[in-house]
Simulated scan of single mutants.
Amino acid sequence: MTTRSCPCGLPEAYESCCGRFHAGAGVAPTAEALMRSRYSAFVRGDTGYLLRTWHPRTRPARLDLDPGMRWTGLEVLETTGGSAFHSAGTVTFRASYRGGTLHERSRFEQVDGAWVYVDGDFLD
């Protein structure tokens, strides 16, 4: 069996990094970990995980991913709050895809002890 590195950019195997969250074997402990796991879910096309980790207040009824989208890298630029000691946090990141980049400041909150994505602002 070949172990592949995690798409989120951390030097761990997918299965022991974001894969465990995708499989339901725990929840991301910080807003940054959730953001990284959501990026990995976008890479892998895991809409179920993306919807499960979206705040109920802002979650869309459905999510249609572009099957032609190829994500190529993630760079976390800044985090504020988002630890076990916070109820909210932000993560600013740049996600690269074939043909461009997405630069966003995402907002996260804890709901029933789990971090969830609320919304984000696109940055230049």
Results as ranks from 00 to 15, higher is better:
residue 2 T to F: 10
residue 3 T to I: 15
residue 6 C to W: 02
residue 8 C to M: 01
residue 8 C to E: 09
residue 8 C to G: 14
residue 9 G to I: 04
residue 10 L to I: 11
residue 11 P to T: 07
residue 13 A to S: 13
residue 14 Y to R: 05
residue 14 Y to H: 07
residue 16 S to L: 02
residue 17 C to P: 11
residue 18 C to Y: 01
residue 18 C to H: 04
residue 22 H to W: 03
residue 22 H to C: 03
residue 23 A to K: 02
residue 25 A to N: 12
residue 27 V to F: 13
residue 27 V to D: 13
residue 34 L to C: 03
residue 36 R to L: 07
residue 37 S to M: 09
residue 37 S to K: 05
residue 39 Y to I: 09
residue 39 Y to L: 00
residue 39 Y to N: 07
residue 39 Y to M: 06
residue 40 S to D: 09
residue 42 F to G: 05
residue 42 F to P: 04
residue 42 F to D: 07
residue 42 F to H: 08
residue 43 V to Y: 04
residue 43 V to I: 08
residue 43 V to S: 05
residue 45 G to Q: 00
residue 46 D to I: 07
residue 46 D to R: 12
residue 48 G to A: 14
residue 48 G to F: 01
residue 48 G to E: 14
residue 49 Y to D: 07
residue 51 L to R: 12
residue 51 L to W: 03
residue 52 R to I: 07
residue 54 W to D: 05
residue 56 P to L: 07
residue 56 P to S: 06
residue 56 P to Q: 01
residue 57 R to L: 15
residue 59 R to Y: 03
residue 60 P to H: 00
residue 62 R to M: 13
residue 63 L to N: 13
residue 63 L to M: 15
residue 64 D to M: 13
residue 67 P to E: 04
residue 70 R to A: 13
residue 72 T to D: 00
residue 74 L to I: 05
residue 78 E to A: 15
residue 79 T to M: 01
residue 79 T to R: 06
residue 80 T to S: 12
residue 85 F to R: 15
residue 88 A to Y: 01
residue 88 A to D: 15
residue 90 T to M: 11
residue 90 T to I: 05
residue 91 V to R: 08
residue 92 T to R: 00
residue 95 A to H: 09
residue 95 A to Q: 03
residue 96 S to Y: 05
residue 97 Y to C: 08
residue 99 G to E: 11
residue 100 G to H: 06
residue 101 T to P: 12
residue 102 L to F: 08
residue 103 H to P: 09
residue 107 R to S: 08
residue 108 F to K: 01
residue 109 E to N: 06
residue 110 Q to S: 11
residue 111 V to R: 15
residue 111 V to T: 15
residue 112 D to K: 02
residue 112 D to N: 12
residue 113 G to S: 11
residue 113 G to V: 09
residue 113 G to A: 03
residue 115 W to A: 00
residue 115 W to K: 01
residue 116 V to C: 07
residue 116 V to R: 07
residue 118 V to P: 05
residue 118 V to S: 04
residue 119 D to C: 04
residue 121 D to M: 14
residue 122 F to E: 14
